[in-house]
Each structure stands twice: as C-alpha cells, then as structure tokens.
Design a protein around this nucleic acid. Structure first.
Lengths: 197, 197, 197, 197
DNA sequence: GATGAATGAGTATTCATTCAT
DNA sequence: GATGAATGAATACTCATTCAT
C-alpha cells in the first residue's frame, strides 16, 4: 500500500466514525480535517467532495460486511443459521449505534437510507443462494426465493433497527420468517437468543 | 374558524405542497413566505420554527389519512379488504409523488421517515381492531395481532415505496400477508389488482 | 426615501469606492461589510450577489454621468463643445483614478470593461443628437452620425484612459475628431486645453 | 531544440489553447497539467507561476504575429494594403475566437487586455514605417505618423473585436482611416471586402 | 528532469431566527 | 395581527504554490 493510499484509508476511517456518531449532515469538512490533523487542501486532494466521501465510507463498510457474510455462506452452519447470520451481518453500526443519541438519530437518515439500498443489492444474491440451498435440502419449501429473502431483509431491518422491539415482536418476526420460507415451525426459534438483550 | 386560524391552514397547505415537491430541507422559509405572499415576521407569528411547521404539516396529513382509514374501518367491506384498504390509505403522497423526480426523492427522506413513524403509531391500533375482528370471524387464525399487522405495514411500506417492484414481488407479498395472518390461501389475491399499474 | 432605501444607497457608495480603489475581484464581500459595519446577512438582504452589486454600482455611476451629459446637451454651449463635453462626462473615475496604483489597474479591467459597454449604449444616442444638431447648423458635414460619434468615443476612451498620452497624441486626436466629423479645421482646438495636465 | 525546450513549447501550446477557449482566470493549473498529462511539479519546473505562463503564451503569440506582419512589411504590396494587412495580422485569436461563447468572452478580458497593450508596442513601429513609406510615396499626406497609426489600431481593435459591427460601421471606419492618414478618398475601399463575413 | 502529496488562505452564499415598530 | 430590516454562525470548495524524494 502506497503512502497516499494509507492516508486515504485513515481519512475514511475518521469520516466513518464521525458520520456515524454525529450524522453525515452534521459533520462538516472542517471538523473532519481538524480531527485528522490535515489541511483543507489535503482533504480535497483525496476526495472530490464530501458527498463522495460518504459514498466511499459506505462502500468500505459494505465491503467488510459482505466479506463477513461471505464467510458465513461458505461455513458449514445449518442452512437456517446461515440465512439468519447473513441477515444479521448487515447491522454493523449496531455497536457504534450506541454512541448516537436521539438528536443524532434523525441526522443519520440520509446515510442510513443510502446504506440500506446499497446493502440490499449486495446481500440479496447471497441470501438467495442460501435460500436455494435450503430448498434443495428440503429445509425450505417455496419458490420466488429472491423475493422472499428480500422480505426478510426488510423486516429484519425495520423491526430491529430502532431498537425498541418487544418480545412479542421477536416472536412474530420468527414465525413470519418461518412462514415466508415455508420452513419447519420452530426451526428458526434460535433467533430469539440472538436478539435477546 | 377565525381569520387567523384560516391563514394558518393556508400556510400549512403551502408548506405541505412545497415540502412534498422539493423536500423539507430544500424548502427555505423565504420560499414559503414568498409563495404565501406574507412577511417573515408573519410566518414566525404562526409557527415557532420551521421544524414545528413540518410537525404540523405531517399531523395535518395524518389526520386526513386516519380519517379515511376510519371510514374504511366502519364500512361493511369484507375483513381482508378492510385490512388492505387501511394499509393502503397510508400512502397519501402517492398522488403528489409524481411531482417529485429522482433528485427530490433523496431530499425527502427526512420528512418521509418522520411520517413513517408517526403514521405507524396511528395506524396500528386501527389495523389491530380489524385483525381482531378477523380472528373473531375466523378469517384470520393467529394471536399477537398488533405485532403481525405491524409487519404488514412495514412490508407494504418498503415494497411499494420505491415503485420498482416486480410481479414476483407482489406475488410473494400477497402470500406473505396471508401467511402472517394465517388467512385462507388466496383470500388476499385481490391485492394484485390494486397494485397493478 | 425609506429607511431601507437609504441603507442600500450607502452600501452602493461603499462598494463603489472599494471596487474602484481595489478592483472588483479583489474586493471581498467580507471587506465590504466590515467597512459598512453590517452583518453578512444584511448585505445579502440588499443584494442577491456580489455580481449584482457591481451591476448596480455601475448603473448608479452611469445614471450620474448620463444626467451630467444631459445637462450639457440642453445647455447653450457651442455644438463642438457639447460634443466634447459629453464625451468627457464619461470619465468619472478620472478623479478617483488617482487612488489606483499599477497593481490595481489590472484588477479593474473587468469593471472597466463592463462600464465601457454600458456607457457606450447610453452615450451614443445623446452624442448622435448633438451630431445631428451640428449637421443642421453646418458645423459638421457628414452622414452616418451615430457610427462616427462611436468612433470618437472609442478613441477618446483608449487614448486618454491609460493616462500616458503625449502632446502629439492629443494633436492627432483633435485632428482626427475634426476629420471624422468633417468639421472646420481648428474648430476642436479647444480640446487641447481640457486634457492639459 | 533540446528535449526540455520542446516540452516547454508543448505546454505553452496547451496553455495557449486553454486560455483562449476558457479564459485565463478560468483555467486552473490543475486543468493544464491534466491536459498535458504531466505532474504538478513538472509544470512548476518549467514555469515559475501561472502568471508567467500567461506572459510567455502571449509573447509566443505575438512573435508569430509580428513575424507575419514583418513579412507583409517586406512584401511588395501597395502601401495601403500593407498598412491594413499589418493591422489585420493583429487578430490572431480571430480563428480560435469561434470557440468562445458569450460566457467565455467575459472571462478573457484580462488576457485580452494584456495582449492589446503588448501588441500595440510591437505593431506601432512597423506600422509607422509603412506610414512613412506612404508619405514618401505621396499616398499619405500627414505628419505625426506614429500617433496616427496608433489611432487606426485602436479603432480597428474596438470596432471589429466584438464582432457585431454593421455595414455603416465599416463604411465610417474606412472613411476615418483614409481621413486620419490624409489618403486619397476611396483608396481604402478594399477594406470592405476584408471584413465582409 | 520529474513527481505528487501537502498546504491553507481565501470566498461567496445560505438561512433560520429575532425584534422594534 | 403583521411587517421587514438585521443578524451571524455555518459551510463546501478552489487553487496557486512548495518541496522532499
């Protein structure tokens, strides 16, 4: 990795952290460069615009997550656990999420939304593969796999994103997943342990 | 309705239209007052802040939609159609949506997101009522009604919001709804006609 | 004159002086507002842009000059003196010019150029009127008056603008004017006294 | 010509084209080096500053034009045609001018102005020589040759530069030239053919 | 001869909000 | 009820120039 490359990665890391904790719109270029200890010009040497920085930050995140999801895909976990694991890999901010307080949450929608769509596009194919494996193995009994896993991603996203879900929410979520995939009732019960907090 | 009240309603209407077509963040107070033909001070006489205007605009929208949903609830439509009708009432922008082009779509996430959450809170109780009616009538066969209708709202939102859904998406959506509610297979088939475009 | 009007005039005066002494491009909005003792927002309350300020500054100048030219036109000076007087009215900066040093001269071309063209458009009609009067009185003996006075304005501009003209330059200039207008040789000799420095 | 010399000439050519088409101020060093395919440092190896690049670009242009003018001077054309030919040689951008649209025209004043003055200094001596030849041959009948040709250059510049001159403008221009030089009426009529477009 | 990472001062513009009248 | 003049903090981006390698 060349000298310039490394610095760019550093900058991406810094921007990533700041966008996450304060929100993209509330993070000014001035703040980023101060944090990074570089000059304005240097920032714009590496990124043509703040917008583009966001784009690259997101791609960087997604690369990591996709990588993680891929490892799950290639593991020898049971199909159901693969499915759920991949869906779950898709909540990276989860840890950093705690940094954000209510005010900031609103500020993050823009970034959030961008991530949601980009990730969807990357994750669906992987999930579909697992889905089809499941059908082959007789774990799932349905067609339209791609569309079904999409439903699952959507639900998982929205139900767990806000953080205020009840036990009943989880119970229904699990039941729904099973029924969407035409899986054995109870086969997804293990999810309850994952989301317990 | 007093004179002042009326003017406020006018302002809300104008703000509503502008927020929808250009996005909340891209609509400046200056633009609103110009459109309304009033002075800056007058605007701030009626609203403590732009943020509050957004809040009231949204409430106004939601009132209308809830009112509409309530009428469906009290109608004598079959249960399934009530359920779907109420969920559908929750896409008011649909008509105005056409104004917005791609650029604006991004600009609207903030408002969009706010609406989504508020509407959820209002709609869920109504839907739950329908759900329970359905259970009583034997159309649905499940407990945890509230949570189940929430899932439906989420799915409906995300699947149809973007506007680029396939036939397979619709098919799976219908199947999912039926299975979430433990309804008779095919009992929701009529949805396909609603979303056909 | 209303309160706001007066302040705007003040701002125009200040901008006028600064543009002239430092050049349009070298005068920042920050400097203007500091000089005026107002806030940034106030500046932009009165002018939509710096560019527009320049435009208005120039118009203000030209108004004054045209007004002066008009008085000459309506005076009972001899035709030749009217002609020259009007042409001369068109060098207002002359006095302030002394402020500018070499560095700044370059900086002013943009403004200068803008003025040149706008003024031309205003002055030519007045000069043409004088020219035609001259023809009627037999002082001048030519057609294409409008085009001829344009030549005169051009020459006067360029010859005297830089400030480094010789006696011979003046001599030839006078002769040229006379010959352009087909005036009596020597009838414009009085110009020499005007430009003597 | 050494290797370095050649590269410098290339750079000058590139800068020349860009300054002309986009204006000096609107052409950034970054754009030049991108176009040239060299590094920032390389640019500054050849030129101490952007300003100096402009200076050299102009000198390069003027060298060409003066060379051309000199050839006319040494030709055996009739005096009047020499005079006009040399004046005309002084509009090199004419060809490239077509690239520029209105926007760019404004952007070029700085460069334009610089050229105007430099060229004047080079051209006047040549023109004066022709003028004196004309006097010797009895084609012109005046003194103060140097100043007279200066007037001609000024007029030619301003009248034809903008590009929006009428037939009457041309007619008066020709008449003026003849009268400035005390030439035979009609002896410059051929100019009309040159500027016809 | 040539590179390219780093600089940092400079600039125009936006906009929600206040308050004396 | 209504006005509109005044605020000032905030912000993204440009670009000529330097210099260690």
């Amino acid at each position: 990795m060349k000298k310039g490359e490394r610095r760019k990665q550093e900058l991406l890391q810094i921007a990533y952290r700041m966008f996450l904790s304060k929100g993209y719109e509330n993070t000014s270029v001035d703040e980023i460069i101060e944090e990074a200890g570089i000059a304005k010009g240097t920032y714009y040497y590496y990124f043509p615009s703040k917008e583009q920085t966001l784009e690259e930050v997101i791609d960087m995140m997604l690369d990591k997550e996709e990588e993680y999801a891929r490892r799950i895909l290639e593991s020898d976990l049971p199909i159901s656990q693969k499915l759920v694991g991949i869906v779950a890999s898709f909540r990276p901010e989860a840890e950093e999420m705690t940094i954000k307080d209510a005010l900031h949450e609103a500020a993050n929608i823009v970034m959030h939304d961008k991530i949601k769509h980009k990730l969807m596009d990357r994750l669906i194919p992987l999930l579909a593969k697992v889905g089809r494996q499941g059908v082959d193995e007789g774990v799932f009994a349905c067609s339209d796999i791609e569309e079904r896993v999409k439903m699952i991603v959507i639900l998982s996203n929205e139900v767990f994103d806000s953080g205020d879900y009840s036990e009943a929410d989880v119970r229904v979520f699990i039941d729904t997943i099973e029924r969407i995939m035409y899986a054995q009732p109870g086969s997804m019960a293990f999810i309850a342990d994952l989301v317990k907090r």
